[in-house]
Design a protein around this nucleic acid. Sequence first.
DNA 1: TTGTAGGCGTTATCAC
DNA 2: GTGATAACGCCTACAA
Lengths: 326, 326
Amino acid sequence: MRKKAPTSQDVARLAGVSQSTVSYVLTGSRPISEATRARVEDAIEKLGYHPNSGARTLRSQRSGVIGLMVPEAESDDGVLMVFIGAIAREARRYGYDILLVTAQEGAQGIRRVVRTGVCEALILMELGRHDERVAPVIESGLPFVTIGKPDEFPQGSVVDLDFEMLGGMIVERAVEEQCDRLLLFGEPGRKRSRNDVARFLAGVEDAASEEGLEVVLDAVPLADVPDQALRLTLPNQRTALFGITGVRQVLFAMAATGALVDDTRLFIALSGEDLVDVSPLLASVPQLDPRRIEISELAVQELVRLLQVEGAGPRVTLVEPRWLEG
Amino acid sequence: MRKKAPTSQDVARLAGVSQSTVSYVLTGSRPISEATRARVEDAIEKLGYHPNSGARTLRSQRSGVIGLMVPEAESDDGVLMVFIGAIAREARRYGYDILLVTAQEGAQGIRRVVRTGVCEALILMELGRHDERVAPVIESGLPFVTIGKPDEFPQGSVVDLDFEMLGGMIVERAVEEQCDRLLLFGEPGRKRSRNDVARFLAGVEDAASEEGLEVVLDAVPLADVPDQALRLTLPNQRTALFGITGVRQVLFAMAATGALVDDTRLFIALSGEDLVDVSPLLASVPQLDPRRIEISELAVQELVRLLQVEGAGPRVTLVEPRWLEG
DNA sequence: TTGTAGGCGTTATCAC
DNA sequence: GTGATAACGCCTACAA
């Protein structure tokens, strides 16, 4: 048997004040004497009162809900879950809830959550280059933040990893580690069209030409990894191996061929995927932290700023990668 | 510049009917003549009208939002994302949206989304044995479905994998594959306290005693996998290796020691984690599909039934595992 | 078959 | 410092 939730009317009655006073206590939009505030808060506590979301939304035009546009997860995608969890938690810290909008719904879905007023702001993840969902977002006029830097985006704020710096950092590290060559896997060459990959490669190339480091792209096409893993290293050289995606496949193949053993000839560094689930052994491989939690939290904070600070304009925030040593 | 969304009033004006008629066209709760219905739908189309969610919720006490209680994702957890994505998509098919309620919010969070009326139903994932969040859910009287079978749960519906059958299936397969022993990893022995693990082991033990198969639990404690992988097999025996969690770690360690090669002595079968991201080589390992997508969809369908079918009672649905061959 | 009107529970503008 | 009161946009009896 579901009993009706108490209303502010009930609270008012119990506290012996008018209904509007209850409202003012809640919103704090008007000074209230200590005495009555206490009485009202008592009554709220006693009744277990929570303001009705529908009514509040209807009246104030603010739903307290942020729409999160999530990409279609292809098979297991743990990375995504890290973002989503962090976003949801951070949003709650500011009193907002997260509503999922799946990529599958497309532009139509955006239009729906916007027009119905379910969401008062949006966070967009993994936008394509010319994503059909961008138009309705901009048209809606709602504040939004994208995680992942699109090519151009003057209308909403952007939070992303500084991929260019990431490229510079791995080059720098390779040099420090006495390496002559840097092998990049995870198809960075072929996926150059992606904004983040392009920025990463730009960072690599800039730094490499400055340091005189040889860079080999797509040294290990993921499909052929098993065959090629042993050929990665050259005699009398030390080689740095770095990748952001496909890390597990590459390491697995290398483990199978025994290539992981010789660290006089091979320096491995990684980014992007959690490796402890692959093997505790890899805990000692230096990793460039892609800082997904920080990025998620910043995205929420930025959105809250756009929502709450009068006249706040969009801006771009790039988060610096960090070395995590085993 | 955010332009106000059109209201049903606007639609009514444009269609030359009363506001209530628009409402009736939308809800279908009253017969409408073809002529006016067409005019109204035209106007709706023309204005891009979507009914205001706040108003509808306030009036009807139904928000069209399902709360999804997600567990705290420890590091990368791709499995979770599969559930969440499938749940969100299926919910949309029935006109519902998914709102995230993080485990971190605890019982308080449940109470909040319930009392404020943001959610009209709940899906609960990964409940602990005596989860503090259960009480407020039951107290709320809202319909709910749990994914994962708790020990006892007469109040809400349950959808879960049939873990007992899973246990039987791996034993049966091991026997078919001429194996003398079945090694289980992923700490099934130690985690016997978990309901699903307990059911799985019960299934294994029943079938094994019937078939006369030797079963070894925790043969490979995950932490020691590298050392033990080679000792797994015995001469002149064929051994079946099966695990649900920690699959990647075990396989990686076995790859490194070369233990994967000899399939005359080893039969590997797995469940629970996607392995293609570890290596395409593993695509040929037979897997017991834990059917997460089906479970997610069923959970939503079950919840919709509880919501929409008058007098519908809670029920338990167990989904059968399936063999996926490479 | 359609229109009129009341109210869902808030917020916020008037008054006092 | 506090109390009435008018919307917010929709649903749904009640009339016609």
